[in-house]
């Protein structure tokens, strides 16, 4: 019996799946979710895939220094609000971040596992994965979650990274099979994703400044919150605002809550005056 088993390549995800399947996502080792033998899987496979809906709006938009990634804070359980302070945007490493839509538990698990995965690879190999390599790896993790999708536990990320070789920010979106698609300008997912996308479509142009990109992102989230019950707008009473991060050459920067609050006050003033 090897005390310190070796032969797992450089992937923490693979290591976990082989050594501790009980801890790996997609419920390997949990029995019922492991594949075709489960009754729930058979039932849903024949007729329909559950609709991919999840109360959230998260978005990414490019600006001249990289990518801005932002998300609302609301968590829902059916018609109930389950949380007002959910963080849906995660720093993954020095040059990448992801935002997620879907079932909260598996979403957070995937973000945490992806963080560990990238750090693990960097330590074992002595170099970081390329931006494309990171995006691919996340695709494989989304794909591994496919059996859970049939149980209704969808996890869909947006991944943004600053590509140091190309010196530009990049945005990737995914489908439930792990399909990976690069977006050139902006993207948004979640139940309010379409509303946010429409706003960004109206205002986006190439080479936005940081301030402009932030304004567009916050406006998009505001519009999504107006149209979609699953998306939370700025909560002025409790002082809870959407969160945003900048992903650029210098790394990941959290945008101050006070700065977001100021921009929302201005936006709301504008709306009051009918603009």
């Amino acid at each position: 019996m090897p005390l310190f088993p070796d032969n797992y390549g450089s992937s923490f995800f693979d290591y976990l799946a082989q050594q501790r399947p009980d801890l790996a996502p997609a419920g390997k080792g949990l029995g019922s979710a492991s594949g075709g033998s489960s009754p729930g899987f058979e039932e849903s496979r024949g007729s329909h895939v559950p609709p991919v809906t999840h109360g959230t709006t998260v978005l990414a938009i490019k600006y001249q220094g990289g990518v801005l990634i932002a998300g609302d804070r609301r968590a829902t359980e059916g018609y109930q609000i389950a949380g007002r302070r959910m963080e849906k945007v995660f720093k993954i490493d020095e040059h990448s971040a992801m935002a997620i839509a879907g079932a909260a538990g598996p979403c957070i698990e995937m973000a945490k596992l992806f963080q560990t995965e990238l750090e693990h690879y960097e330590k074992l190999e002595g170099v970081q994965l390329s931006c494309e390599g990171k995006a691919n790896k996340l695709g494989q993790m989304v794909k591994a979650n496919l059996p859970m999708v049939f149980q209704g536990l969808v996890v869909l990320p947006i991944y943004v990274g600053y590509d140091l070789k190309r010196a530009e920010g990049r945005i990737y979106k995914y489908d439930i099979t792990g399909g990976r698609y690069e977006e050139s300008d902006y993207h948004s997912i979640g139940s309010g994703g379409k509303d946010a996308r429409n706003t960004m479509k109206e205002h986006f142009r190439k080479n936005l400044s940081e301030e402009e990109a932030l304004q567009i992102a916050l406006r998009a989230l505001y519009n999504a919150a107006e149209e979609d019950v699953g998306t939370g707008g700025p909560d002025l009473v409790r002082g809870i605002y959407p969160t945003a991060k900048l992903v650029g050459l210098a790394g990941i920067t959290d945008i101050d809550e006070s700065r977001i609050a100021t921009l929302y006050t201005a936006l709301i003033d504008l709306r009051k005056r009918g603009a």
Partner: peptide
């Protein structure tokens, strides 16, 4: 090999 095993041990523990 020992180094790699150590990283796996540490990352697994930190994740768990």
């Amino acid at each position: 090999n020992l180094r790699k095993s150590g990283i796996r041990h540490a990352d697994l523990k930190g994740y768990m």
